[in-house]
Amino acid sequence: MPRRALDNPLVLAVLGLLLEQPAHPYQMLAELRKRSENHAAAINRGSLYNIVQALAEAGWVAARGQQREGNRPERTVYALTPAGHQELVHRLDTQIRTPEREFSRFLGAVSYLGALGPDGATEALTERGARLHERTATDQQRLAEALAADVPRLHVIEAEYALALARSELAWIDAVVADIRTGALTWPAAPATPLAP
């Protein structure tokens, strides 16, 4: 298995799930999709199986028997090994301590915001802000419900962080839209039309 499979950001999520309890890859996939829309978009069954295979080859997880549910085929259940636990702790420590510039699709799009023109940029940012505001309100309600149900705050700390990021993005969007409307953010003269092929 190529080393790059161990560099996949989902390795941390898989090791974290197996810290909680042994599982077979299908259970891992279902749990990752349940917990995070980001993981749901980023993972498919084939890539998860490749990651689990790479983790087993690295000695970070080990097969702990088979499990059968109904008429489904037997599935191999994996558990975290001591080396896997050590790797999980190392990765967590490193990723928490070391801020990295993470490139998102939105950041890439914002780099070319000028191509939309002032009206198009205002419209697009306003719509994104409305959608983000709606999602943030829903996420805030879910977080409040979890805390009201006595879920320990540490178990939902990632949801709290995601809300803080979303609120920060909303504040930035509002400020940029205000700057476009007041003229504080200006557009240069229109560039020449691209040449036709």
Rank of each mutant, 00 (worst) to 15 (best):
1 M>N: 07
5 A>T: 04
7 D>A: 15
12 L>E: 12
13 A>R: 08
13 A>Q: 10
14 V>W: 07
14 V>P: 01
15 L>T: 00
16 G>T: 13
16 G>P: 06
17 L>F: 05
17 L>D: 09
18 L>A: 05
19 L>H: 08
21 Q>C: 08
22 P>Q: 04
26 Y>N: 08
28 M>V: 15
30 A>V: 10
32 L>K: 03
34 K>C: 06
36 S>E: 04
37 E>A: 14
40 A>W: 08
40 A>Y: 08
41 A>H: 06
47 S>P: 00
49 Y>W: 13
51 I>N: 04
57 E>V: 08
58 A>M: 06
59 G>C: 09
61 V>T: 13
63 A>H: 07
66 Q>F: 10
67 Q>N: 09
80 L>K: 03
82 P>V: 09
83 A>F: 06
86 Q>Y: 09
87 E>L: 06
87 E>R: 14
88 L>Y: 10
91 R>D: 05
93 D>K: 15
93 D>N: 15
93 D>M: 15
95 Q>V: 14
95 Q>I: 14
97 R>K: 15
97 R>Y: 09
105 R>S: 14
106 F>N: 02
106 F>Q: 07
110 V>G: 00
111 S>V: 10
114 G>S: 14
116 L>S: 02
121 A>P: 02
122 T>K: 08
123 E>W: 01
125 L>N: 02
126 T>W: 03
127 E>V: 13
129 G>W: 04
131 R>Q: 05
132 L>K: 06
136 T>P: 02
138 T>H: 13
143 L>S: 01
153 R>V: 09
157 I>Y: 07
159 A>I: 04
161 Y>E: 14
163 L>D: 06
167 R>A: 02
167 R>P: 00
170 L>W: 03
174 D>L: 02
179 D>S: 10
184 A>S: 10
190 A>V: 14
193 T>V: 11
193 T>P: 00
194 P>L: 06
197 P>K: 10
